[in-house]
């Protein structure tokens, strides 16, 4: 009998049988669950293209063995736009032209969502660049990416204050 895991994937409960313990979260998403939005770049934790949220925290899905994730809550780029409305980070990436070829973009966006949730950078461009350094963009769209994260942070912060009030 294959081992199996249960997880919540983009808000939906899933039971997944795994016949091979070597399957990473990245390969599980792309090759077994038809979610190719998460990209495979280096497959070694060096480029960030595979970034997803596990229990709300950004991680490299290429270095995460799927079998370790029983009970986890996973969010991928496909799960970010609630009810067809783009997430503020997605809006900001379009607004600021924060990509060229687009291959690294799902990872950049998921990493930015994670960074903003961490509250580490605020809208300080130096802290944003440092916080986003785990995501490589070979088209060098870094300037636009930094602006997009700044914009998204500003647009999301007042919402948080309203929630708290």
């Amino acid at each position: 009998m294959s081992p199996s895991i249960s997880l919540t994937l983009n808000g939906e409960a899933r039971d997944i049988a795994l016949d091979d313990p070597r399957v990473t979260l990245l390969d599980l998403l792309r090759e077994r669950l038809a979610l190719p939005g998460t990209k495979k770049g280096c497959d070694r934790g060096q480029c960030g293209a595979c970034t997803v949220l596990v229990n709300g925290r950004r991680v490299n899905s290429c270095l995460t063995l799927a079998l370790t994730l029983d009970g986890a809550e996973i969010t991928t780029i496909e799960g970010l736009a609630a009810d067809g409305t783009l997430h503020p980070v997605q809006e900001a990436f379009i607004e600021n032209d924060a990509f060229q070829c687009g291959y690294c973009t799902p990872g950049q966006i998921m990493s930015a969502v994670g960074l903003i949730a961490e509250g580490r950078a605020g809208d300080d461009p130096e802290r944003i660049r440092e916080g986003m350094s785990g995501n490589i963009c070979r088209c060098v769209a870094y300037h636009g990416i930094t602006l997009a994260v700044q914009d998204a942070t500003r647009s999301m912060t007042p919402l948080k204050k309203e929630d708290a009030a």
């Binding site: 991680v59 490299n60 270095l63 990493s111 785990g134």
Partner: peptide
Amino acid sequence: GASGQLRNA
């Protein structure tokens, strides 16, 4: 050390 993603893991 490393990146935000790696430090989270």
